[in-house]
């Protein structure tokens, strides 16, 4: 019976000896721009709320502006190589979308598709005051780029979609099973679930910390050429709560996906480049069938030996296609 007293004494002793709390800043995930003033930031007024976003710019402000939009479960770090590669001809603006990466966290009410468009408008006023800019979007960022183009076709000078998400809920409904394969017996999911045994997800940091593991999950094996060992995807912070809200807005396979980013795309006459990997569940073949038809003037290009993380897997090939397409390289 002494075991109980020893155990209790151990717990009390351990608690007293712990100087740090798991809830302190920077214990699990990097602090955001509102918490760490050393990070470069910009204040945006979106959905009636001022938030700090983490922004990096590359190249000369005198060059034509190019906005790079990252995908879900991601942030701008994942496309740094493209930003640096394009900085010789463009003024590249890359930021962590509100609630993601090192940008300030937001509330549920602040994320809507309208607000996501408003966010790009706010960035345009600061970094592309001339009014027009080039957009490159990856995955969710590709969907957002398409949505923005459908609402503001006059502002989008050139459009590149890299492995964009399905642009309508109906398409997503058809493709969802090839994108996410949920299994109760999946090892990655089991690890995610078991983290509750050690760390209580009491606040955003613990949820973000856990969400980082999704980047290596085998539940999205279809995205990658090697689904068991997906390629490294550099990210500072996955905004777990933001992903939850975004998924809520998009819908789900049970009750249905109810979004549509396509109305108005038929008005966009400029050429559109769509890049798809050869072995991704959102790759070339899918883009040809599902995305191309929404644009009057789009071409799809296959990047060989590449999955969804196309720019880290085949950087040279992606850059070659971008240089071939983008006006400033011609």
């Amino acid at each position: 019976m002494f075991i109980r007293y020893i155990a209790l004494a151990c717990i009390v002793g351990a608690c007293c000896s712990c100087q740090k709390s798991v809830y302190e800043l920077g214990v699990l995930v990097p602090p955001t721009v509102d918490q760490d003033p050393a990070l470069p930031s910009q204040i945006l007024q979106v959905a009636g709320v001022s938030r700090k976003v983490h922004v990096r710019v590359y190249g000369s402000p005198a060059s034509p502006p190019l906005f790079l939009l990252h995908g879900s479960y991601s942030d701008s770090r994942s496309h740094r190589n493209l930003c640096e590669g394009l900085a010789d001809r463009y003024f590249v603006v890359s930021w962590d979308q509100r609630g993601c990466g090192l940008s300030e966290r937001i509330t549920e009410a602040e994320f809507t598709f309208d607000a996501a468009v408003e966010e790009i408008d706010a960035m345009q006023r600061i970094y592309a005051p001339g009014g027009t800019f080039t957009v490159i979007g990856h995955s969710w960022g590709g969907g957002l780029a398409a949505l923005y183009t459908s609402r503001r076709p006059e502002k989008v000078r050139q459009l590149v979609l890299m492995e964009p998400m399905p642009l309508t809920g109906a398409d997503m409904q058809q493709l969802f099973k090839t994108i996410v394969e949920f299994s109760y017996f999946n090892e990655s999911w089991s690890q995610l679930a078991r983290q509750s045994q050690a760390l209580g997800p009491r606040d955003h940091e613990q949820i973000d910390y856990r969400a980082m593991m999704i980047l290596r999950s085998t539940m999205t094996a279809g995205y990658h050429c090697d689904g068991i060992n997906p390629p490294a995807w550099p990210v500072w912070r996955v905004g777990g709560f933001l992903e939850y809200v975004r998924n809520k807005r998009l819908g789900n396979p049970v009750s249905g996906f109810k979004y549509d980013f396509t109305p108005g795309l038929e008005r966009y006459a400029n050429p559109v480049l769509i890049l798809g990997g050869s072995c991704s569940s959102l790759g070339y073949e899918v883009q040809k069938k599902y995305t191309i038809p929404y644009f009057p003037n789009a071409q799809a290009v296959e990047i060989r030996e590449a999955g969804h993380r196309i720019n880290v897997e085949q950087y040279e090939a992606v850059m070659a296609e971008l240089r071939r397409f983008l006006l400033e390289y011609r």
Binding site: A14, S17, C18, S21, G26, A38, G200
Partner: peptide, 20 residues
């Protein structure tokens, strides 16, 4: 050329208030 205060996640014994 710049630096900040947070250079990595913290290892060691940590207090928490985790409930299920």
């Amino acid at each position: 050329g710049t630096s900040g205060s947070f250079d990595g996640p913290q290892d060691g014994w940590l207090r928490q208030n985790a409930f299920i």
